[in-house]
Design a binder for these strands. Structure first.
Length: 224
DNA sequence: GCGACAG
DNA sequence: ATCTTGTCGC
């Protein structure tokens, strides 16, 4: 989209500040959905091509119910704090190809654990007004103690005096992931889902399957 | 001022 | 993110 490719970093930050006024963060826990949608984007080396994947997963069984992908050109560069402007266009296209609107989104990245409290999960959640949260693999914003070594253990991620997320252990003796709420969901529910949706791997199935599907679709579009 | 910095 | 095989450990 031309408006995105022409946007400068300072303008993008203004957009985040504007969209943040629509952010809804419930104080307490709520009912959990029966299905969720995991999201991820895979980039081609040496070109602007990329493929986004949206994978619908049943919470109780962690089974993949549907996969949708969208390929295209990425125009916005990777800038820490502005990841959404790079990934949102293709992610929205992939989500749009699902046979049903997403009940809840799980993003590969952060939610409110962000310099301006508006990471990728907040951005997508607000645009679609759907519950959303982020599961990141590496540190970005926030500090805190190491959670206990067993699956299910977690510790607070604190930034500028606020708890913005949690480091969550999804597997025994494995490096924890960084969980933060995005929109219309409490951190405790995000933590619960991240652990329940993990099965033998560090990354929860929805996001893990989205990574696998987007990667496979990119390779397929390059070869066959 | 310098370094660090989701994917 | 991506370039990349086998290998050690839970």
């Amino acid at each position: 989209m031309a408006t995105l490719s022409a946007m400068r970093p300072d303008e993008a930050e203004r957009v985040q500040d504007e969209l943040r006024t629509r952010l809804v963060l419930p104080a307490g826990r709520g009912p959990l959905p029966g299905t969720v949608v995991g999201l991820d984007v895979t980039y081609d080396t040496g070109s602007d091509r990329a493929v986004a994947a949206a994978v619908l997963v049943e919470v109780s069984s962690r089974a993949v119910l549907e996969v949708a992908t969208a390929a295209g050109e990425v125009t916005f560069p990777y800038v820490p704090g502005l990841l959404a402007f790079r990934e949102v266009p293709l992610l929205l296209a992939a989500i749009d190809r699902l046979s049903q609107p997403p009940p809840l989104l799980i993003c590969d990245g952060y939610g409110v654990a962000h310099p301006r409290r508006f990471g990728l999960a907040c951005h997508l959640g607000v645009l679609l007004d759907v519950p959303a949260f982020g599961v990141a693999k590496t540190a970005f914003v926030g500090t805190g103690p190491e959670p206990a070594a067993h699956r299910g253990a977690w510790s607070d991620l604190t930034d500028r005096g606020e708890v913005v997320g949690r480091r969550v252990r999804t597997r025994d003796h494995t490096k924890p992931v960084f969980v933060s709420a995005g929109h219309r969901i409490a951190l405790a529910d995000c933590t619960d889902l991240a652990v329940r949706l993990s099965a033998g791997f560090r990354i929860p199935e929805p996001t893990r399957q989205a990574d696998i599907s987007s990667r496979a679709a990119l390779r397929a579009s390059q070869n066959g």
